[in-house]
């Protein structure tokens, strides 16, 4: 058994090694984009069952953004929704024999955490400008600046480790049980792994919303600070 902690390089594009996780990610991307193109070609005012399901997904994401971030979901829908969909589908690729979930590799989780880290900066600057974003580190007092800077890094790191640990452990346990007990014994653990994958996708998306909402709220110009204008 290959250790899940190691990244298997399938081929090289010039000097760039292409690992299995990247290839699986490309497959997931192709599937999601192709499905999106195909399913959204014939949207109409009288929705089909498929369109109703798609609208249900979008409405669920919008509802979560409204409830968690207390803002209109338009600017955040694509990022939060794509994070959830990608992690959800990636976690469930463990159902495909011979395919490891990309999220079971640290590089993918680190990439997702890095994107959240960058998104927090992007939405913070977008909400309050550079001055507002940096002022958010001084919330609630100026003495919190060092702790807030450390927190902005460590919370992204914790997201990475949480997702990696949960998914990797599931794959690891299923692999160990499969190597020891045979074909049918790991099935309950695989079902549990699917549940864990769905929950982790939801948690990752909710945490991303919480972090973005926190910096957006802190970066917004307050009524008693007329010098800070929104961009």
């Amino acid at each position: 058994m290959i250790s899940p902690l190691s990244s298997v390089v399938l081929f090289h594009l010039g000097p760039v090694p292409i690992s299995e996780g990247v290839v699986v990610t490309w497959g997931i991307m192709a599937m999601l984009v192709l499905a999106s193109v195909l399913l959204t070609r014939r949207l109409s005012l009288r929705p089909s069952p498929t369109q109703a399901f798609l609208e249900l997904v979008v409405e669920a994401v919008d509802s979560q953004i409204r409830d968690t971030m207390r803002v209109e979901p338009g600017p955040y829908r694509a990022f939060i929704g794509t994070l959830f969909l990608f992690i959800f589908v990636a976690n469930w690729t463990s159902l495909v024999p011979g395919v490891d979930p990309p999220t079971a590799h640290l590089e993918t989780d680190a990439a997702l955490a890095l994107l959240v880290f960058l998104a927090v900066i992007w939405f913070g600057v977008r909400a309050g400008g550079m001055r507002g974003y940096f002022a958010s580190f001084a919330s609630p007092t100026i003495f919190m600046v060092p702790l807030n800077i450390v927190e902005s890094v460590t919370r992204s790191f914790s997201m990475m480790v949480r997702l990696f640990g949960n998914v990797m452990s599931g794959v690891f346990v299923v692999g160990i049980v499969l190597s020891l007990a045979g074909l049918l014994v790991p099935i309950p653990l695989m079902a549990l792994d699917l549940l864990t994958g769905a929950v982790q996708a939801y948690i990752f998306a909710v945490l991303a919303m919480v972090f973005i909402a926190g910096v957006v709220e802190d970066a917004k110009p307050s009524a008693d600070d007329p010098e800070r204008k929104s961009p």
Partner: peptide, 10 residues
């Protein structure tokens, strides 16, 4: 993927 899904799905 975020951009593509935003463009073709969301």
């Amino acid at each position: 993927l975020v951009w593509l899904l935003g463009r073709f799905f969301w």
